[in-house]
Nucleic acid binder design. Structure first.
Lengths: 160, 160
DNA sequence: TGCGTGATGTTATAAGATTACATGGGGCGT
DNA sequence: ACGCCCCATGTAATCTTATAACATCACGCA
């Protein structure tokens, strides 16, 4: 799994590896990786784009795994809280983490043309955000960093 | 008006100055700074925190300036599009810009205890986000950078 | 067995945002 | 003055996103 998500890669093994990693982590952390939670993560992993909660819910419904919003939101809460998925605030949508379990300070690059989302990692307390916070005497606990623009592929297509 | 919003300051003059600055800018840019738009900006300026669209709508309603959601959303769209206000994605809420008209790459520091929001400016193409984008071949058009944590004042109160 | 904890099922509703269509007022060319 | 266009506004309806509240179930454990 690479840190940048725009390159082609072996997707089915990427899915399998992620599930296995999360499964192992849940075991050691004493967390219940239940069928719904696992399935939601699989659904998210099938795309390198963000899915809305209701999009996920639709798929769960088709599979008979639950039909009401709280089912999807609860699974997503679990995944997000434990760092297995992230919420993209800009899109009100969710995406699987590409570095499950690693120390977390995600940065997202969102392509406005093809909706692909790449996740990268940065130290939030360094760099310009950290500097702004230090100047203000502000203590950062979490940071949302989401850039919107064009991925390499889409820069060369319509070239809007 | 300072670039960091946690210090005490002369708030009524800050409001007045902002409105005057925006008014002048609208004049030169040929934009209509209508009563609803002006009032919404005033409402936002009265607080150094983000307000939801419906919170704003409630105040407009009390004043007889409009009662349906589109009234508030349209005014907010105008203000955001022209850089006089910003949307805080993390909160689904809006805040007046503290640097109206200046070249814009805002960074927000959101206090989770008192809800104060400070706005600072950074060059988005520099720093860690820019670096991540460059590595990925991604072209940034807009960036959402919102840090959540504790402002100086709240660090010394309950000390959660 | 009985209890507590955490996951699920289900109903209802809150909160945030947009679509669509009707109305009105100001500037401008004729 | 007239008609026209553009932009802003008024309003109803609807859609999307998210949560509250409460019942039930399964498991581990005293």
């Amino acid at each position: 799994m690479d840190s940048i998500g725009f390159e082609p890669h072996d997707h089915s093994s990427c899915i399998h590896d992620c599930i296995a990693a999360v499964d192992a982590q849940c075991r050691t952390a004493g967390l219940q990786f239940t069928p719904v939670r696992r399935r939601v993560l699989e659904i998210l992993l099938q795309e390198h784009r963000a899915l809305g909660a209701y999009e996920i819910l639709d798929r769960l419904r088709e599979e008979g795994l639950g039909s009401q919003p709280p089912v999807a939101y609860r699974a997503l809460d679990f995944l997000v809280k434990n760092g297995f998925a992230h919420k993209i605030e800009r899109l009100n949508a969710f995406i699987a983490c590409t570095h499950p379990g690693e120390h977390h300070a995600p940065v997202f690059l969102i392509c406005r043309a093809c909706d692909a989302v790449a996740e990268s990692q940065r130290e939030p307390t360094q760099g310009q955000l950290g500097q702004a916070a230090r100047e203000a005497g502000f203590v950062i606990e979490r940071a949302v960093i989401e850039a919107e623009g064009l991925c390499p592929k889409c820069q060369h297509v319509g070239a809007a």
